[in-house]
């Protein structure tokens, strides 16, 4: 278990209730979670259980109804931490080309923003094209978002989350709209990036094999109101391959996750 110092994200008895219109909806109920610096955590759970809400809270886009959120050991110290966020629905700005959309973090995030004017047609551009090549979109740099398919937009969305090499990556079903082969290819890309740079990653996914392939640790949540019902290390060695994710250990691990989600009462985590 991580020690106090290298905890990067800490949720302490966080609850989130939406009041708008009619009966209040409790999205999160008393969620406590610690994520160490450099850890890769997958969040899984049924639809509507509050996974996206956790990412929005951590990104500072939402205020908790109660409880505390610490980033880098300090409360609401989000400014000190660079965050990359890939939303569940790709939100590219329609008036910018894909290249300029992906460059957006470089335009506003501190170490890069000072160089933006000078470098946007030079090194930043090379950076973007390098990212696009990794996800197979190199020919679409100067296209507009509406000229791309859903899966292509999702890949561009992932590039935008990664481009400024953030310390903390928040990925909300980043591979959801992709076919099996592209998805597995991108798992490999993602694993390489994580092994090379060691960002802290919170990955929301519905795909159990994806969780087992990518994550160090999997968190399973209950149906709404979301609570954490299981917190397990993934017992698979790195680097992992797609074939390996069909191995006996991997399949058993996924089976275990599946039972936790389909019938939370009979199984308990750990």
């Amino acid at each position: 278990m991580p020690t106090r110092q290298d905890i990067l994200v800490e949720l302490e008895r966080l609850s989130l209730t939406f009041e708008a219109g009619g009966a209040p909806v409790t999205a999160l109920d008393n969620v406590s979670l610690k994520v160490a610096d450099g850890e890769f955590v997958a969040l899984i759970g049924p639809s509507g259980c509050g996974k996206s809400s956790i990412l929005r809270l951590v990104a500072g886009l939402q205020k908790p109804s109660s409880g505390f959120l610490f980033l880098g050991g300090r409360e609401q110290a989000a400014n000190a931490l660079s965050v990359g966020l890939a939303f569940q629905n790709p939100t590219m700005l329609p008036w910018l080309t894909i290249e300029r959309n992906i460059m957006l973090p470089l335009k506003v995030v501190p170490p890069f923003r000072q160089q933006y004017r000078r470098e946007r047609t030079r090194s930043f551009r090379d950076k973007v094209h390098e990212m696009l090549r990794l996800v197979g979109l190199e020919q679409f740099a100067s296209h507009f978002p509406w000229q791309l398919s859903g899966g292509m937009l999702q890949r561009a969305n992932l590039c935008r989350a990664l481009i400024h090499e953030p310390q903390l990556l928040l990925l909300d079903e980043p591979f959801g709209a992709l076919d099996q082969f592209t998805r597995e290819e991108l798992w490999g890309v993602m694993q390489n990036i994580w092994q090379a740079r060691r960002p802290t990653v919170l990955l929301v996914t519905h795909d159990l094999r994806e969780a087992a392939f990518l994550a160090e640790r999997t968190i399973v949540m209950s149906p709404r109101p979301g609570r954490i019902i299981s917190d397990m290390q993934v017992p698979l060695a790195r680097p992992r391959t797609s074939e390996q994710s069909y191995s006996v250990e991997a399949v058993e691990f996924c089976q275990h996750l599946r039972r936790l989600i389909s019938d939370p009462a009979t199984e308990t985590g750990r």
Binding site: A59, L61, V83, L85, F87, N89, T91, L93, L104, V109
Partner: peptide, 17 residues
């Protein structure tokens, strides 16, 4: 659309940005 603004909020952009 708030979603478009969220992209920049998440990057801790200023109101002017």
């Amino acid at each position: 659309e708030p979603e478009l603004e969220d992209v920049l909020h998440a990057l801790k952009a200023s109101r002017f940005d």
